[in-house]
Amino acid sequence: MITQNKRLIAIILTVVFILCIPLVAMQFTNEVDWKLLDFMIMGFLLLSTGLACEFVLRKVKGTDSRIVVISIILVILFLIWAELAVGIFGSPFAGS
């Protein structure tokens, strides 16, 4: 069984790993052009999503309830990510 502290470390390491992907890509192509603010925003989104899922795992008892709540959290993450990337809703923070 994974302890809670090990899950927190895994969340942080996963966020760092995911953020390394565009960092490495920027070294090989001009197609990926992230600024410091982009890394900060995505880091915040990924970390807050991971911590929200950890909170659900700690506080919600039923497996079905956990799946539903974590699914909702992930859908929200993907909608925010898509909005920031391409502006699917045309909101002011879309960046397009």
Rank of each mutant, 00 (worst) to 15 (best):
57 L>E: 05
34 W>Q: 07
88 I>M: 12
4 Q>N: 12
6 K>L: 10
63 T>G: 02
16 V>K: 05
23 L>Y: 15
23 L>P: 01
26 M>V: 09
80 I>L: 15
27 Q>T: 15
34 W>M: 00
12 I>L: 12
69 V>M: 02
83 E>G: 03
41 I>G: 08
79 L>V: 14
81 W>V: 03
85 A>R: 12
71 S>Q: 00
51 L>T: 02
87 G>R: 05
36 L>Q: 10
41 I>C: 04
59 K>L: 04
64 D>F: 08
21 I>A: 12
69 V>N: 01
91 S>N: 08
12 I>D: 07
66 R>P: 00
38 D>M: 14
42 M>N: 14
39 F>Q: 05
53 C>A: 14
72 I>R: 01
32 V>Q: 05
43 G>R: 11
34 W>I: 03
36 L>Y: 08
15 V>H: 02
1 M>C: 13
26 M>T: 07
24 V>L: 14
86 V>I: 12
70 I>V: 14
12 I>A: 14
20 C>R: 04
64 D>M: 13
17 F>W: 06
58 R>L: 11
32 V>A: 11
28 F>D: 03
90 G>S: 02
16 V>R: 04
29 T>L: 03
67 I>P: 00
44 F>D: 05
78 F>W: 12
55 F>L: 11
30 N>T: 13
85 A>G: 05
78 F>D: 13
49 T>D: 08
18 I>W: 02
49 T>E: 06
83 E>I: 08
45 L>W: 02
18 I>H: 05
85 A>F: 11
19 L>E: 08
3 T>V: 03
53 C>N: 12
24 V>F: 12
89 F>V: 07
52 A>F: 13
52 A>K: 05
14 T>K: 09
59 K>Y: 01
49 T>L: 15
72 I>V: 15
9 I>V: 13
12 I>V: 13
19 L>G: 09
46 L>V: 06
4 Q>G: 05
1 M>V: 11
49 T>P: 06
8 L>C: 13
7 R>Y: 09
6 K>C: 03
43 G>C: 00
49 T>Y: 00
20 C>N: 07
4 Q>C: 08
17 F>P: 02
27 Q>K: 11
94 A>C: 00
